[in-house]
Write a protein that binds this DNA or RNA. Structure first.
Lengths: 136, 136
DNA sequence: ATTGCAGTTTACGTTAACGTAAGTTATATT
DNA sequence: AATATAACTTACGTTAACGTAAACTGCAAT
């Protein structure tokens, strides 16, 4: 029975997530990824791909690379150390708080956008009507 | 009848939004705020305060200062220029797309956090039980 | 044999978003 | 009059997150 594992080259991942190879190597410098090697070449596993996906998603919602790194650690505690596990649970709670705040912020922004759009469309409407009236 | 207007000093705003005065002046350098002056001193209006609030909120969801600046412009088109108004409507649409994506990202992150927390708690549970069993 | 990729390392450069420090001014208080 | 407090300007420093360039290494196809 042969080991059949999915792997990726750096450029494959770069393409998939629309980042440069430099960026991916940079994440490795920061210890966010630890690809295997075949000689010099980096070989990325499915787990690596998942982490990268998480990082990219994190960036979209404004997380720093450091924060994404902490998230990654939360997802693989493994250490079984009680103290550490409890800290992780704490961190998860804190992260949830932040995300909840973001949800609120996005909500009010969407509302604001609605208002702004309505304002624009009203403006456009009156400016398209050659001579506007005062009361109708 | 006297003009009664609410104004703020730079340190008042700094306190309210938990930023430094340096930060607020920096936003002015970037043209995001244009406070009035009383001699040397900056006098912030309610509108300025609102803009600052928007910027701070923007930062929480990962907007750059430049992006927040664009948002501010969307909220006060005023120019009545049709072409410009249509561009603004476009920009509003684009911004909505981004926010929608963020909502999705946050959703999956919250799910992931749930999973991670469940994992941690399970671990904690078994590690607290002195001798664990294999099948129950 | 060489041309051309895809990948690698090393290292300096760049941009955004402030921090920090130094020296100045205005107002108010003791 | 002296001191404190809050503001101001100017300017250099710092951190994060890469960009960009140079020079090297396989491996494959012409």
């Amino acid at each position: 029975m042969v080991k059949e594992t999915t792997t990726y080259s750096i450029s494959e991942l770069a393409q998939e997530f629309a980042v440069t190879t430099r960026t991916i190597r940079h994440y490795e410098d920061l210890q966010l990824l630890r690809p295997a090697r075949q000689g010099q070449k980096r070989i990325y596993s499915l787990a690596d791909r998942t982490k990268l996906k998480l990082i990219v998603r994190g960036k979209r919602i404004g997380l720093s690379l450091q924060e994404s790194g902490q998230l990654i650690n939360m997802y693989e505690p493994g250490k079984s150390n009680v103290d550490q596990l409890e800290r992780t649970v704490q961190a998860i709670g804190a992260q949830r708080q932040k995300l909840a705040q973001q949800l609120r912020d996005i909500g009010t922004m969407l509302d604001d956008l609605d208002q702004a759009e309505a304002g624009c469309k009203a403006e456009l409407d009156t400016s398209r009507r050659p001579t506007s009236e005062k009361k109708t």
